[in-house]
């Protein structure tokens, strides 16, 4: 569902640090469990070593009124990532895989930053910070299981 948007992402989602303009593509693959419920809202974002918000890579789910259920992301980003059409796609159905590519600045890799995923499903429990994985070259390619909805989460650095 989101593959068509990948090209657009490359431009829009580059997380840059002003001094270092070098960036590399980061491919995220998130497979959902076969839970019984409607499509999941997901927010994929990056926080620094202190837990402060650094930027949003991707949001699945188009209705801003449900974003408060992605509570960590919503709180940390203070609504900053709203309305970024280029990094927003449809909610992800149970059992399906979301695969998106974003650009991250070199300076964020192996520098104590973390990738987080918040998940929420209508009428089911919200699952903020369902995934918390340090953004390091050694972690790349390793699958991580989520607590509630995510079967496996993997990222690749190129």
């Amino acid at each position: 569902m989101s593959r068509a948007l990948i090209a657009a992402l490359l431009a829009a989602t580059t997380l840059t640090v002003p001094a270092l303009a070098h960036s590399r593509p980061l491919t995220i693959s998130t497979t959902l469990k076969n839970y019984s419920g409607n499509g999941a809202y997901l927010a994929v974002y990056v926080t620094d070593a202190k837990g402060a918000y650094a930027g949003t890579l991707w949001v699945s789910g188009g209705k801003p009124k449900f974003y408060k259920h992605l509570s960590d992301w919503n709180r940390l980003s203070a609504g900053n990532a709203r309305g970024l059409d280029a990094i927003t796609g449809a909610s992800v159905t149970a059992g399906r895989t979301l695969k998106v590519t974003a650009d991250v600045a070199d300076a964020l890799v192996d520098a104590g930053y973390e990738i987080r995923v918040d998940a929420a499903v209508e009428d089911l429990r919200d699952s903020p910070s369902e995934i918390r994985v340090p953004l390091t070259t050694t972690n790349a390619g390793k699958p991580h299981a989520g607590r509630q909805y995510i079967q496996s989460f993997t990222y690749q650095l190129q």
Partner: peptide, 14 residues
């Protein structure tokens, strides 16, 4: 109207 955010039912931020 609430689904399409034409009326605001809840605060955006906590």
């Amino acid at each position: 109207a609430a689904t399409f955010s034409l009326v605001t039912v809840e605060r955006d931020a906590e």
